[in-house]
Lab assay of single mutants.
Amino acid sequence: MTTFKLIINGKTLKGEITIEAVDAAEAEKIFKQYANDNGIDGEWTYDDATKTDTVTE
């Protein structure tokens, strides 16, 4: 398992969460579901060097 981080730069929700996932694709799926569940819809970027997804509304 690898640690992945999501940075949220939303209009109403800001912060970050960290998860353990098998790979980047699994982490992205989990993060996008989390964002959807919390009403966050924005531009996504991924930095492989830091294993960090960022969503900005």
Results as ranks from 00 to 15, higher is better:
1 M>Y: 10
1 M>I: 10
1 M>T: 12
1 M>G: 05
2 T>W: 14
2 T>V: 13
2 T>N: 07
2 T>C: 15
3 T>K: 13
3 T>P: 02
3 T>L: 11
3 T>E: 10
3 T>C: 15
3 T>W: 13
3 T>I: 12
4 F>K: 08
4 F>M: 01
4 F>S: 10
4 F>G: 12
4 F>T: 11
4 F>C: 14
4 F>R: 05
5 K>Y: 12
5 K>P: 12
5 K>H: 09
5 K>A: 01
5 K>E: 07
6 L>R: 00
6 L>P: 03
6 L>K: 00
6 L>N: 00
7 I>Y: 05
7 I>V: 10
7 I>M: 03
7 I>A: 00
7 I>S: 02
7 I>P: 00
7 I>N: 01
8 I>P: 00
8 I>G: 00
8 I>A: 00
8 I>K: 00
8 I>R: 00
8 I>F: 08
8 I>V: 06
8 I>M: 03
9 N>V: 12
9 N>L: 12
9 N>W: 13
9 N>I: 13
10 G>W: 13
10 G>A: 07
10 G>S: 08
10 G>N: 03
11 K>Q: 10
11 K>V: 13
11 K>D: 05
11 K>L: 14
11 K>F: 12
11 K>Y: 12
11 K>S: 10
12 T>V: 11
12 T>K: 12
12 T>I: 11
12 T>A: 08
13 L>N: 05
13 L>R: 05
13 L>D: 04
13 L>H: 10
13 L>G: 08
13 L>P: 02
14 K>N: 05
14 K>T: 09
14 K>C: 15
14 K>H: 08
14 K>E: 03
14 K>L: 09
15 G>P: 09
15 G>E: 09
15 G>W: 15
15 G>H: 13
15 G>S: 10
15 G>Q: 13
15 G>A: 15
15 G>C: 15
16 E>W: 14
16 E>N: 04
16 E>Q: 10
16 E>Y: 13
17 I>S: 00
17 I>W: 12
17 I>D: 00
17 I>H: 01
17 I>A: 00
17 I>C: 15
17 I>E: 00
18 T>D: 01
18 T>V: 10
18 T>E: 05
18 T>Y: 11
18 T>G: 00
19 I>Y: 02
19 I>D: 00
19 I>G: 00
19 I>M: 02
19 I>Q: 00
20 E>R: 13
20 E>I: 14
20 E>K: 10
20 E>V: 15
20 E>P: 01
20 E>D: 06
20 E>Q: 13
20 E>F: 14
20 E>M: 14
21 A>Y: 12
21 A>K: 05
21 A>F: 14
21 A>R: 02
22 V>C: 11
22 V>E: 04
22 V>W: 13
22 V>R: 13
22 V>F: 10
23 D>A: 02
23 D>I: 04
23 D>C: 11
23 D>T: 09
23 D>R: 01
23 D>G: 03
23 D>S: 12
23 D>V: 10
23 D>Q: 02
24 A>S: 04
24 A>T: 03
24 A>G: 05
24 A>F: 14
24 A>E: 06
24 A>Y: 15
24 A>N: 05
24 A>M: 10
25 A>Y: 09
25 A>L: 10
25 A>P: 02
25 A>F: 10
25 A>T: 09
25 A>C: 15
25 A>G: 06
26 E>D: 06
26 E>C: 09
26 E>Y: 07
26 E>M: 10
26 E>F: 05
26 E>R: 03
27 A>M: 04
27 A>H: 00
27 A>Q: 00
27 A>P: 00
28 E>L: 15
28 E>M: 15
28 E>D: 08
28 E>F: 14
28 E>W: 13
28 E>G: 05
29 K>Q: 08
29 K>C: 13
29 K>D: 02
29 K>W: 11
29 K>E: 04
29 K>T: 05
30 I>P: 00
30 I>Y: 13
30 I>C: 12
30 I>V: 07
30 I>G: 00
30 I>K: 06
30 I>E: 01
30 I>W: 13
30 I>A: 03
31 F>D: 00
31 F>G: 00
31 F>A: 01
31 F>Q: 00
31 F>S: 00
31 F>T: 00
32 K>I: 05
32 K>D: 01
32 K>Q: 09
32 K>L: 08
32 K>S: 04
32 K>H: 09
32 K>C: 14
33 Q>H: 07
33 Q>L: 07
33 Q>M: 09
33 Q>R: 10
33 Q>W: 06
34 Y>I: 11
34 Y>E: 01
34 Y>H: 02
34 Y>Q: 01
34 Y>R: 01
34 Y>P: 01
34 Y>D: 01
34 Y>F: 11
35 A>P: 01
35 A>K: 02
35 A>T: 07
35 A>G: 01
35 A>I: 12
35 A>Y: 06
35 A>E: 02
35 A>M: 13
36 N>H: 14
36 N>Q: 14
36 N>T: 12
36 N>A: 14
36 N>K: 15
36 N>M: 14
36 N>E: 14
37 D>A: 13
37 D>E: 13
37 D>K: 07
37 D>F: 09
37 D>Y: 09
37 D>W: 07
37 D>M: 13
38 N>Q: 10
38 N>V: 12
38 N>K: 08
38 N>S: 07
38 N>T: 03
38 N>I: 14
38 N>H: 14
39 G>V: 02
39 G>S: 06
39 G>N: 09
39 G>W: 06
39 G>C: 14
39 G>I: 03
40 I>L: 06
40 I>G: 01
40 I>Y: 03
40 I>N: 01
40 I>F: 07
40 I>R: 01
40 I>W: 07
40 I>A: 02
41 D>A: 10
41 D>F: 14
41 D>E: 13
41 D>P: 03
41 D>I: 14
41 D>M: 12
42 G>N: 04
42 G>E: 06
42 G>Y: 10
42 G>V: 08
42 G>W: 12
43 E>D: 09
43 E>K: 07
43 E>V: 12
43 E>C: 14
44 W>D: 02
44 W>S: 02
44 W>Y: 03
44 W>K: 01
44 W>Q: 02
44 W>P: 01
44 W>I: 03
45 T>M: 04
45 T>V: 11
45 T>I: 08
45 T>Y: 12
45 T>C: 14
45 T>G: 05
46 Y>E: 02
46 Y>N: 03
46 Y>A: 02
46 Y>D: 01
46 Y>F: 11
46 Y>S: 04
47 D>G: 05
47 D>V: 11
47 D>E: 09
47 D>Q: 07
47 D>P: 04
47 D>I: 11
47 D>K: 04
47 D>N: 09
48 D>S: 10
48 D>G: 06
48 D>N: 08
48 D>W: 12
48 D>R: 08
48 D>L: 11
48 D>T: 10
48 D>C: 14
48 D>K: 08
48 D>P: 13
49 A>K: 10
49 A>S: 10
49 A>D: 09
49 A>G: 08
49 A>V: 12
49 A>W: 10
49 A>M: 11
49 A>P: 05
50 T>W: 09
50 T>A: 07
50 T>N: 08
50 T>E: 04
51 K>Q: 11
51 K>R: 11
51 K>I: 04
51 K>D: 03
51 K>W: 08
51 K>T: 06
51 K>L: 08
51 K>V: 03
51 K>G: 08
51 K>H: 11
51 K>F: 09
52 T>W: 06
52 T>F: 07
52 T>P: 03
52 T>H: 04
52 T>Q: 06
52 T>N: 02
52 T>C: 13
52 T>G: 05
52 T>S: 04
53 D>R: 15
53 D>Y: 15
53 D>S: 15
53 D>V: 15
54 T>V: 08
54 T>F: 09
54 T>P: 04
54 T>G: 04
54 T>M: 09
54 T>Y: 11
55 V>W: 07
55 V>P: 04
55 V>C: 11
55 V>S: 08
56 T>P: 05
56 T>H: 07
56 T>C: 10
56 T>K: 04
56 T>E: 06
56 T>W: 08
56 T>I: 07
56 T>R: 07
57 E>S: 07
57 E>F: 03
57 E>H: 08
57 E>Y: 02
57 E>L: 11
57 E>T: 08
